[in-house]
């Protein structure tokens, strides 16, 4: 992959008070790949995601997305950047006063001037693409189950056909069948829409099933990046424990069986 990375993080430092979360973190994400970010609790995975999409300002370091610096963009550039990525938060973060269709239409409404019928048709397509039934369109978020809410959040994230999708724990809280379905949904839409996927996850099955590369966060930096196979050979206690633990063995067996 000779192309310039689509997301480039250099020397990132994040501190909350005296607590240092990231201490000189570097990470590159290539166009078109699915990268899984893993790490123990409190290693700043979600914080990293929030910083890359510009919701949090790091203390030091550079973050460039599509070659543009996220930290120093003006409101106008930030607006056009936002149009090129979609974010799905942990619980879906649907707007509770809008139904699913209006939620999916919200980014189109904000960024483009479309006719209501076009918006409705595109929203219906996106909702079907994420595997929700048609009757979910008019439901309020409070009437949806957790898994459906995540799917609707995903539909909103891909409403504008973004180039990058950020997913924060997409399979957390789903049953194994739902999680597997969500994994194949991500892979399928990556293929159809040409997405680059940046996902924070704990789910070893997801890592096996769909991630092209894995970045491991520990000690305030990325201690290892590579494919699942390469992870087996990294000599670091946390990486060993994570990728060679009993759950990892089960997930690996599962992945082989498929």
């Amino acid at each position: 992959m000779s192309e310039a990375p689509i997301i480039r993080v250099r020397g990132l430092v994040t501190r909350f008070g005296k607590h240092t979360v990231h201490d000189g973190l570097d990470l590159d994400v290539q166009r078109g790949e699915i990268i899984g970010v893993v790490g123990g609790s409190g290693t700043g995975k979600s914080v990293l995601l929030h910083e890359v999409v510009g919701l949090l300002k790091p203390v030091a370091g550079d973050i460039t997305v599509f070659g543009e610096n996220v930290r120093d963009t003006g409101p106008e550039e930030y607006r056009s950047l936002r149009r090129r990525w979609g974010v799905m938060f942990q619980g879906g973060a649907l707007f509770s006063s809008l139904n699913v269709q209006q939620n999916v239409e919200a980014p189109m409404r904000e960024q483009l001037d479309l006719m209501p019928q076009t918006r409705a048709a595109l929203a219906a397509i996106k909702v079907r693409m994420v595997g929700l039934p048609d009757n979910a369109l008019l439901k309020m978020p409070s009437e949806l189950s957790g898994g459906m809410r995540k799917r609707a959040g995903f539909a909103r994230a891909i409403a504008l056909d973004p180039e990058i999708v950020f997913l924060d724990e997409p399979t957390a809280g789903l049953d194994p069948i739902g999680a597997a379905a969500f994994d194949s949904l991500i892979a399928q839409l990556r293929h159809a829409l040409g997405l680059t996927v940046f996902m924070v996850t704990h789910d070893l099955d997801s890592l096996h099933a769909i991630c092209d590369r894995i970045a491991v966060l520990a000690e305030g930096r990325v201690i290892a990046v590579g494919t699942m196979a390469q992870m087996q050979d990294i000599d670091h206690p946390w990486v060993q424990a994570y990728f060679k633990g009993p759950r990892a063995r089960a997930a690996r067996a599962q992945a082989k069986a498929n």
Partner: peptide, 16 residues
Amino acid sequence: KPQSALIETLRLNMPQ
């Protein structure tokens, strides 16, 4: 190829 894949996905997901 990717365009055909996208069109195929759309065929499956066209709303009534």
